[in-house]
Simulated assay, not measured.
Amino acid sequence: MSIDGKVALVTGAGQGIGRAIALRLAQDGAHIAIVDMNENKMTDVANEVSKIGRKASIFRADVSHRDEVYQAINDAERRLGGFDIMINNAGIVQVQALADVTPEEFDKIFKVNVQGVLWGIQAAAKKFKERQQKGKIISASSIAGHEGYGMLGVYAATKFAVRALTQTAAKEYASAGITVNAYCPGVVGTDMWVEIDRRFSELTGAAIGETYKKYVGGIALGRAETPEDVAAFVSFLSGPDSDYMTGQAPLIDGGMVYR
């Protein structure tokens, strides 16, 4: 069995892990609703999906705005003819000592990383129920959702919160046939880690590249994670082989954090 013909919506799909997820799910047979803030990047991903032979739609949305998330799902259903899989992938990072976090910084990251996931869970579950069908909701947590890291405390708090939302939603929506899981990557070679490394350099004086090298050095499998590594696991969560799994947030980090 596969996800052939299913419709999957991926937030933050214009680049990095989100792009890799969109392309992997397209390769596995799904039509892809691409949601992001950058229309040029969305168009590029849509073209790649089309080359694979699957349908694609694009919708510009800020996931911290509840109504825009609902609109994105309605648009995906209308343009792609269904709605089966919700990937709450969009997120931002913040590198800051706890003592220096401002109210504005706190609010910004929680609005995207936590509210964005909550609105995605709400909107997807509502749509699945309207369509009287089962569905899958999958959200981005992190190794920082299992263990706090210095200078990444508020970011970690948002990722712990994603795990809490995942567990609660799994319990609330199980009777409707909706499964809710999360994925927890480690050190992935994307623009987000470029930003993390840059900020550590600013705040600690470490040379550019040194923080990234330090964290990669702690990976048991001996290399940084790729977006495709994450996408392969999300593909499993999206497909029928994970139908008996709900409320979980497994680590996929090459061997960094062990739970």
Rank of each mutant, 00 (worst) to 15 (best):
M1Y: 03
M1R: 07
S2Y: 04
G5W: 02
V7D: 08
A8S: 10
I17G: 00
A20V: 09
R24Q: 15
A26G: 12
G29M: 07
A33E: 13
A33M: 12
I34T: 03
M37E: 05
N38M: 03
E39M: 06
M42Q: 07
T43A: 06
D44G: 07
E48T: 08
K51N: 10
G53Q: 12
K55A: 15
A56M: 08
A61P: 00
D62F: 01
D62L: 06
H65C: 10
R66I: 03
A76L: 07
R78G: 09
I85Q: 02
I87H: 05
N89Y: 02
A90I: 13
V93K: 05
V95E: 03
V95H: 01
Q96H: 09
Q96Y: 03
L98F: 11
A99D: 13
V101A: 07
F106W: 09
F106V: 04
I109R: 00
F110R: 03
F110C: 13
N113L: 01
N113E: 10
G116P: 01
W119D: 08
A123D: 02
A123T: 10
K126E: 13
K126Q: 14
K126H: 15
K129H: 04
Q132W: 01
G135L: 08
I137E: 04
I138V: 03
I138M: 00
S141H: 10
S141N: 02
I143M: 09
E147M: 13
L152V: 11
L152H: 07
G153L: 05
A156K: 03
K159G: 02
F160H: 08
A161R: 02
A164C: 11
A164V: 05
L165E: 03
A170T: 07
K171I: 12
Y173H: 02
A176L: 11
I178Y: 04
V180Q: 03
Y183S: 13
P185S: 14
P185F: 12
G186M: 14
V187P: 01
G189S: 12
E195T: 14
R199W: 04
R199G: 08
S201T: 14
S201Q: 10
E202L: 14
A207E: 12
Y212H: 10
K213M: 13
K213L: 13
K213A: 15
V216S: 04
G217L: 15
A220C: 15
T226Y: 11
T226H: 15
T226E: 12
V230W: 02
A232M: 01
F236V: 10
G239A: 09
D241S: 11
Y244S: 12
M245G: 01
T246G: 00
T246Q: 00
I252S: 03
G254W: 04
M256W: 02
R259Q: 10
